[in-house]
Design a protein around this nucleic acid. Structure first.
Lengths: 301, 301
DNA sequence: ACTCCTTTTTTGTCCTGGACAAATTAAATA
DNA sequence: TATTTAATTTGTCCAGGACAAAAAAGGAGT
């Protein structure tokens, strides 16, 4: 079976590497080395697309492209080596349980995973379920993806099923009617929604009035939505995969677009490395988010 | 309050128009006409970004860029005029009810919308709920967005809340264990998920074993997932907004990637204008999708 | 008037190769 | 060992040309 070659647009879609990057890598490093079709346009064999995807994965993990492209195929070793993050001791029972849940996904047994998680939710209650089950699981899925033991579609299945659990749990809560009114969304190009759902669950538990707008809102629309819904707080989420360099400028631009009386909160793994920004509250952890909520209420009696 | 200018990357993110398109429009039509920053790079005033968004909206509706850019501001009239699609007579009571539901979204009363829809679901049952409530509502939201009476964030809120309802309803169904095993997903750049959820609901009602992988799966990953899950059918969804010219080549490429024994089904409003493709089943309506499911079962006893 | 075929215009995408600034690493200094 | 400075790496942007696929316009035949 011969998989046909990919055009440059298809490679961009499938790898997340922009056309500019693909061309400049070819010029500088000699890789990728697509052949040309009848019109002189680049035509990438599936094999090179796979390799590009691997390189992208390792880059998101912190490696640099120059090194990765130079290395022949021993990357595979460096790949596994770097993800040996030692796990905190003393929680081995818990770790085992989470591992068992991940194994269910790995076996592609979605139904069993869903059932097991439902039980956990009932046992722990929503707050601890989010903080002690969903959040650590998400982290471990990320690690498993980085070290190659999880395929992308395993991650997708995990995400999809977990999203359902969280949404179901949120829908079961009484509708929040008290302040603050919190608008939850993400900027364009940021499509990870799990973090947003987790924080929505926590806020909804506290009785806040959450307005979930889904992901990928253009900045100007976020501003309009905040006015139209008279939101007290606009909460954004940034995943690790989001291009770091853009986050700061993006937040500052949004700050200028938003009504001054609306607070701007940013959370997610992507903002860990960020320094302080004027008029933006950076909330890297759930505890900080809950504390910020309490602070807001104290300041707005 | 002065909203700062946008860089070309920000405009691409917020409007969905590629950098290439933005530059070539400027060269050909003289619009947009960004000023230049200190580095000679394009810098788009927020006003022009808004206008670009409007143009994009009208283009998705079928208008051509050359005309739109030439027209000064009378587009606003042409905009409203074109969406006067006469509604089918005889269903006015039903139309009224749907209109009332839309009005709830428009009033930004998410809670009331959710409650009303829940009632409808209980009354109609899932199948009729999908076909007679969700599908027509989705169509009307699309129309409302095109003629400007819905903001983008209204559409996002509608989508988000409706997704929740559908997922909840699907989760309440007994787990499908019988054939066929259907893998549901969409290709990269296609992020509309409502159609996928609607069809999942219908398939799940028929007892099929649905594997929801969420949206935006790279083609090669879809192939792998189909093998790993031993899927009988891979079902993809394309919205109207998806670039038409790419759909056919994309489907043919995926056909070659998939195991030959796996069927490839494509649905959604985006495939309406498509002609027949070898090895791909085009299913523009829900009825056709259900018929295809029945056919599959008849052929695989 | 309507359909089918051909020609022209429109429009998006791709190309080359240069430039530069922000981020990162390496070197040098206190 | 810290902290500043120089060098390198790397992503993004630019200009302007080219081309093919899609859409519109024109023409011939039934």
């Amino acid at each position: 079976m011969h998989i046909p070659d990919f055009g440059i647009a298809a490679v961009e879609r499938d790898t997340g590497l922009s056309k500019d990057v693909l061309r400049v890598w070819e010029r500088r490093y000699g890789f990728p080395a697509p052949r040309r079709d009848a019109n002189g346009e680049r035509s990438y064999p599936a094999e090179q697309v796979e390799r590009l995807r691997l390189i992208k994965r390792l880059m998101d993990q912190g490696h640099r492209p120059g090194k990765l492209i130079a290395a022949a195929t021993e990357e595979l070793s460096g790949l596994a080596a770097c993800s040996l993050v030692p796990r905190a001791a003393g929680e081995n029972g818990e770790v085992e349980q989470l591992g068992a849940l991940l194994a269910l996904i790995k076996q592609r047994n979605g139904a069993a995973y869903q059932q097991a998680m439902q039980q956990r939710l009932a046992r722990q209650g929503l707050q601890r379920f989010v903080q002690d089950s969903v959040a650590p699981l998400t982290r471990r899925v990320g690690e498993a993806w980085e070290d190659g033991s999880f395929e992308i579609f395993d991650e997708h299945l995990f995400t999809e099923l977990t999203k359902r659990l969280l949404r179901q749990a949120i829908a079961a809560l009484p509708v929040g009617r008290s302040r603050p009114r919190i608008l939850l969304t993400s900027v364009p190009d940021e499509q990870h929604v799990l973090g947003l759902l987790m924080v929505e669950a926590l806020f909804a538990l506290e009785g806040a009035d959450c307005i979930p707008l889904g992901v990928q809102m253009p900045l100007l629309e976020i501003g309009r939505a905040a006015s139209a819904h008279r939101a007290d707080i606009v909460a954004l989420s940034f995943s690790v995969a989001f291009p770091q360099r853009q986050i700061a400028v993006l937040l500052q631009q949004l700050r200028l677009i938003l009504p001054p009386e609306a607070a701007l909160w940013a959370g997610g793994a992507g903002i860990r490395r960020l320094v302080k920004l004027d008029g933006v509250d950076l909330l890297p952890t759930f505890d900080m988010a809950l504390a910020a909520l309490a602070d807001w209420r104290a300041a707005h009696p």
